[in-house]
Amino acid sequence: MNTIIKKLTGMDALTEQVVAMDLLNSAKSGIRNYAMAITESGTPEIKATLIRHLEESLDMHEIILNYVMEKGWYQAWDRDKQTELNLQNIETVINLPTL
């Protein structure tokens, strides 16, 4: 999409928000998968490796979470504000011009 069109439609910020939130969801999924894999690991060495990866994933999740919260895109501890943000995003998408 053309940079001018992105700015006119508000898609430049929305695109960044979508990518960041997708990254946050992927981090959560990775954490869940590592935790499950740890419970199924067959050797202490594999378990230790998975635990190290889990800890790194938790650190990355925290970085991403702080970023999206600082930007105001995610209000993890305020359900009403998060609902309002979701509704605003829905309204933005609904009102995007069709090309």
Rank of each mutant, 00 (worst) to 15 (best):
A20Q: 05
R52K: 15
L65W: 07
T9N: 12
G30D: 10
I94R: 06
T43N: 08
M21K: 06
I46Q: 15
L85N: 11
R32H: 08
I5A: 11
V18N: 12
Y34L: 05
K81Y: 01
K81W: 02
N95A: 03
V18H: 11
G30K: 05
H61T: 01
N25Q: 14
I64G: 05
L24D: 00
I46W: 08
N33Y: 10
K71L: 01
W73K: 03
M11L: 14
K47S: 07
G10K: 04
V68D: 11
Y67S: 05
E45K: 09
A35F: 10
Q88S: 10
W77I: 00
Q88I: 04
I38Y: 10
L24G: 00
S29W: 14
N33A: 02
N95M: 03
T9C: 08
M36F: 07
Y34Q: 00
E56V: 02
T83C: 05
D80P: 01
L96N: 10
E84S: 10
I5H: 15
V68T: 08
T15A: 13
D78Q: 06
G72N: 10
L14D: 08
I51C: 03
T92R: 10
K28M: 04
L24C: 00
A13L: 13
L50R: 03
Y67P: 02
R79L: 08
R79E: 13
L85C: 04
D80T: 06
E45P: 03
A35G: 12
Y34R: 00
L23H: 14
E45T: 09
T3Y: 15
S29E: 07
D59I: 04
E84M: 09
G72W: 14
I31L: 12
K6F: 08
A27T: 02
I46L: 15
E40I: 01
L65G: 02
Y67W: 07
M36P: 00
I38P: 08
K71C: 03
L24N: 00
I31M: 12
N66S: 15
V93H: 09
